[in-house]
Amino acid sequence: MSTVSSLTGSYAYNDTLKGVYYGPGSIKTALPKLLDILGVKRALVLTGRSLFHNTNIIKTVESILKEHDAYGATFYDIGQHSPIAQIKSGAEQFKAVQADVIVTVGGGSPIDAAKAICHFLHQERGGPYARQIAIPTTLSAAEYTFAAAYTDEEGNKIFSISPELAPAGIILDAELTLATPERLWLSTGMRAFDHAVESLYRPLVPPPIKHLCYAALADLYTYLPKSKADPNDVEARQKLQIASWMSLWPLKLETFTSFGLSHVLGHKLGATYSIPHGITSCLTLAPVVSLKAEVGTKEDKEWLANALFYLRKPSTGSAEGDIKALSAEIQRLVDDLGLHSKLSQYNVPRGDIPKIAERAVGSKEDPTFAAVVALLEAIYS
């Protein structure tokens, strides 16, 4: 009697996102399906230098596109934090080959860069937005949002937001993640953990989505250590990709709100000091959760405290105690994954700490300013 694995399948939920296809080896069938659904005539493959030069993944994608007479060119000059100069170059390449879709392979930077390219092309020529098929090889979950995050010439993080910027299709093929460097894979897993935790107190997130975040936390907590112990465990990798999806389940534009302090600090630290966003989550999430035990609302504390149950850890008997215990478990996970780091390792000047805190909370008069300064001091060295 044959069985069908729950780790293979597809799901579609609105007119913008035609479908998420998932499962080991799914690239071979999912990409042709999406090409057909979208009526693709010419695709630009968008990726980074490491994937292009050090793996066969891009050649696999190019081959499938060529088989369906849909290959235009490959642009592989997208770096960390999606610099605007590279985005503009990618947009020129898109126009040069007369592409009508971007097939993005990689992590959050190329996926966000593709959204930004679609944004700038729409500004320039109007009409329907160009579309993206996202094939993530990390756990950053950028593929589930309609916000294009990129870095301007001064190193500031910029966001462009529109429902049409969400990818039209997503392919979660765990076999394509085997070449992802361990530190990048695991740290973006902590980024997904950050999404799930901060969605528990993010405004306008409905309760069913919060419960998906609990499930994401449970799986990330279980399978990140398993993936570290056995990097070739494709089943663990596929479960992590699905957990990343649950950590940032797509919401409509009217419910789009910013994340919490951990994400805000990550945005202030990442591009300015060249710290990968996965690592910023490793630095900030545990202390931010600990701070929530002191400054969070009663409802936020309840949602956070309940997360301890999903990690199969006993309650301390109080919401504040459980939040502190959750913070300790997050830090322990970071440490066990070999991701412990300090701001000083990334050459962040200690004198910049008050400025970073002020930018994060908005003003030195904010009641949490001193606490955020203390938080940053604690993770400095």
Rank of each mutant, 00 (worst) to 15 (best):
G189M: 11
A147R: 05
G90D: 15
E182S: 00
A148H: 10
A328S: 14
G351M: 10
F94N: 09
H122I: 06
L35D: 03
R125M: 06
A130Q: 11
E198C: 05
S199D: 02
Y310T: 08
L253E: 12
L34I: 09
K228M: 01
L333D: 02
A229N: 00
I242N: 15
A113S: 15
V373Y: 00
S327N: 06
I161M: 00
A141Y: 08
I170G: 13
L343P: 10
E320W: 04
E294L: 12
H277E: 04
P354E: 13
I111M: 15
G296N: 09
A168Y: 01
P163G: 02
C213G: 03
L65A: 08
A286P: 05
I133C: 05
I353S: 03
D366Q: 04
F52P: 00
S89Y: 13
R125H: 08
Y71C: 04
G90L: 13
V4W: 14
A130H: 09
F146I: 04
T138P: 06
A142Y: 07
K95C: 09
L178N: 10
Q345I: 02
I58H: 11
L65G: 05
K66C: 10
G48L: 11
F193M: 05
T3V: 10
A229V: 01
Y150Q: 03
L65V: 09
G362Y: 02
A236K: 07
E294Y: 10
L46A: 13
A236W: 07
A168T: 06
G106D: 14
V101K: 10
Q241H: 01
G126H: 12
H68R: 04
I135C: 11
S5L: 11
K66S: 11
K59G: 00
L51H: 12
S162Q: 13
T137M: 14
Y310F: 11
I209G: 02
A236E: 07
C118A: 13
W245V: 06
V105T: 13
I58P: 12
N156E: 04
C213F: 02
E254D: 15
T316V: 10
H81D: 00
D352S: 13
T368D: 15
T222D: 00
A141D: 12
P225V: 04
L165F: 12
I279R: 01
G19E: 05
T272E: 13
K33L: 07
I58D: 13
V45G: 01
G270V: 03
L240S: 03
L165H: 11
